[in-house]
Design a protein around this nucleic acid. Structure first.
Length: 318
DNA sequence: TAGGCCATCTGGTCCT
DNA sequence: AGGACCAGATGGCCTA
């Protein structure tokens, strides 16, 4: 008989990232019927192995089993089942932690999850990139930042990250070492980074009436955003000035994100990587973002309270 | 269909 | 003795 590991309060442990994540009803979580099935399956395997012993078939691993008394054999089976359950629990806990990690690295998407290995690689790169930014003490170069993020990632993940950060992924070339290099100026560089002289560089120099008439996504100015942050005088001034129409992408828990104001339906439809990180076909990489966004987005201490992912997604839907 | 990813089972090892 | 952790094996699912 298996113990019931999955509803164990211990399994609802706190994330090491400071937030408590309620265990979702995982489709993979075994219900009682599945537990029974697993148990039966286990029993079958046990018996199979015992048959192997009798037939003198070579065992794959471990010492040859002794013939156990019936009572002791049952006990061994039970212990094995319990160990299996604990192991499942342990792995679920590990997966929970990994899911928490997915939520705090760039490019979180419920619909297109990063694999475990890619999540770990991206997290490592992200930590590295942020550390570099902090130690440099000045605004980071976005391209270098993204390149660091993408180091060693697979091409699909690189595309995802680049897409998330609104760069043209075609300009990222992964060399044979898995390093990512950047070749040339991104197609969208000018529109994405119009700084310093382009019209969009100024908060008020945004759009003409015709633009509005077709409901374009307004570009944000990344560098202007940085300026805004770095211009804020004291460490106490936690809310940099952003009184123009443009605002940079939101960042929650260090994730670049964009807050949608309009075209929500179409935005959602065209969102290839989930709700938060999208390239909108026909609209370049430009988004209209919330004027109440704050900067710096990627420099918040983890201890600060942020909206949960669900709240964020709700915000997008509403 | 091959390959990637994943969950699970399993036996071994280490620690309490 | 028993639990935690680990790594190998296996099979299922999905996608290109």
């Amino acid at each position: 008989m298996l113990t019931v590991p999955f509803e164990d309060p211990d399994m609802m442990r706190e994330s090491q990232f400071g937030a408590t994540f309620t265990r979702q009803e995982d489709a993979r979580t075994l219900n009682s019927a599945e537990l029974k099935e697993a148990e039966d399956d286990n029993t079958d395997r046990e018996e199979e192995r015992e048959d192997d012993d009798e037939n003198d078939l070579p065992k794959k691993k471990g010492a040859r089993k002794k013939k156990l008394s019936e009572g002791r054999g049952e006990r061994v089976k039970m212990r094995r089942h319990e160990a299996n359950a604990r192991e499942r629990s342990r792995m679920h806990g590990l997966n929970d932690a990994l899911e928490s990690l997915r939520k705090v690295v760039p490019c979180y998407s419920k619909t297109q999850k990063l694999s475990k290995i890619e999540t770990l690689r991206l997290a490592k790169n992200y930590i590295w990139a942020l550390s570099e930014t902090l130690s440099a003490g000045k605004r980071p170069d976005l391209l270098a930042f993204v390149q660091t993020l993408c180091k060693g990632l697979s091409q699909p993940t690189t595309n995802l990250v680049a897409g998330c950060l609104q760069l043209n992924a075609r300009n990222f070339l992964t060399d044979h070492n898995g390093d990512v290099s950047f070749s040339g100026r991104p197609h969208q560089y000018d529109s994405l980074y119009p700084y310093p002289n382009a019209e969009m560089a100024t908060p008020t120099g945004l759009s003409s009436g015709t633009r509005d008439s077709v409901k374009p996504f307004r570009p944000y100015n990344y560098y202007a955003s940085y300026e805004s942050y770095y211009d804020s005088a004291s460490p106490e001034s936690s809310s940099p000035r952003f009184d123009g129409q443009m605002s940079p992408p939101n960042n929650y828990n260090g994730i670049f994100s964009l807050k949608k104001h309009e075209d929500q339906v179409e935005y959602s439809k065209n969102c290839h990587y989930g709700m938060r990180y999208c390239n909108v076909p026909g609209r370049g990489s430009m988004y209209r973002v919330s004027p109440d966004s704050h900067f710096p987005y990627d420099l918040h201490p983890r201890g600060q309270s942020f909206q949960s992912q669900d709240e964020l997604n709700t915000g997008f839907h509403n």
